[in-house]
Amino acid sequence: MRCSDELIIRRLDGELSPEGEEELEIHLKGCAACRKKASDLVASAGILRKGLLKDSDPPETIWRAVMEKTRVGYARLRFYRAAAAAAAAALIISGVFLSRSPGEGYLSGFSSLVFESVSEEEWGPDGALEGDTVIDMFLRGEL
């Protein structure tokens, strides 16, 4: 049998057949280099097993950190949603002001596009909506 690192490692992992084990044993008796290699492999694996064996309970600080970061994440998400809604509302309100004098100003086309679904009767005498605000309608999905 030739020198084989693979066989030495397979033995270490308990994957060698009894015949293979016997064959390797015979080889190791006559090969000092492989014997040293096998002994070092067993020793280094043993160090890891002994040095890393014991588990411990996780400190509670981990959970606190997770909750803190997760809450910040959710708060940020809520903030972004609120900011997006505010931006949309601001866009609509600016459209209301610009639509007071239809036909005048370069955004009048845009404002009439945004409010085309609002009928003439719904507009008050000064161009503002009577009753519900535009934001109320927007939030109800009517715009």
Partner: peptide, 17 residues
């Protein structure tokens, strides 16, 4: 590594690390 009594000696833990 945590100084657990059963986790090998300090020397073994140092060596593992």
């Amino acid at each position: 590594y945590l100084p657990e009594e059963d986790a090998g000696t300090l020397e073994e833990r140092d060596l593992a690390a």
